[in-house]
Nucleic acid binder design. Sequence first.
DNA 1: AAGTCACTCAACCGCAGGACG
DNA 2: GCGTCCTGCGGTTGAGTGACT
Length: 328
Amino acid sequence: MGRPPCCDKSNVKKGLWTAEEDAKILAYVAIHGVGNWSLIPKKAAGLNRCGKSCRLRWTNYLRPDLKHDSFSPQEEELIIQCHRVIGSRWSSIARKLPGRTDNDVKNHWNTKLKKRLVKMGIDPVTHKPVSQLLTEFRNISGHGNSSEPFLRNFKTEPSNNSILTQSNSAWEMIRNTTSHESYHNSPMIFTNPTSSEFQTAFHFTNHSNHPLNGATSSCSSSSSSASITQPNQGGQAPVTTFSWSDYLLSDPVLPLSSQTQVVGSSATSNITFNKNENFNTQGESSSQNIASKVSGTCHPASSFVDEILDKDQEMLSQFPQLLNDFDY
DNA sequence: AAGTCACTCAACCGCAGGACG
DNA sequence: GCGTCCTGCGGTTGAGTGACT
């Protein structure tokens, strides 16, 4: 038996809000304050809206402290940096941007920033250059031979065409690819971005002196990506020093600490997170899933997750202020 | 001028977690 | 411990609109 609906949906208005409805919300808040949204249909006469819908209207549009102008370059850069570190935790990102809502940030990311990164050859999920992802994928998939049909689907020359023609994320494709058959059938074409494109990209994502640069997380996004690497500057070949593929393909008997080196753990950061933030739930299950698919055993993946958890603890212990900035 | 397409963004949906009785 | 209510969150949808053919 499921949970009953929050209101009688057949009797409730949906869709865009009118000025009159907005006025009723404002009047209700002025009298009763924010909260108890479920009481609105009873207390605000003539407002035939679900309380949940009223709360959303207030939160995303009517709140007096909201900005309604377009995002500044500084705000956009902050969104990108935050997304690189914590992924699609829009409410957390929005708290760093006064006057912006999670919905604003999410929409702006999906409509502008994600596309911008893709155009620059940056995977918007991992924030790594697509070429680097492909290199790593070759390493873990055993498709290092360029004569493989899969790799022939990837152009390596710079092109004016879009970087990713059919996917928003190279990593998405890699995640979704579970057999050689699908590799071979993949119609996607990847191209290497030019150096200038990379330089433009890293204007946003990798200032060498940017205080955010050292910030790494066990889960760079909500996806299964879990590599802890820093993109290189200026279009040079990126150097992966800590990749989940290391765990998937390395000898599980050897101590992991001797096989990997984590970058950024000694750097400073002003992107900070609450200690209660659970970065590992999705990444853990996903990486284990990938591990099962790729290696047929879960040992390397669980070691990988353990290592990530350790590194998270290490990072947080080094930067106590990390525990305070994001409120949940 | 009309039709189509792509884009934006407000709003909806389902789920999860905390508070409370 | 359990059920209910409320709130918050992230993903998704679809109406509106402008650009393009």
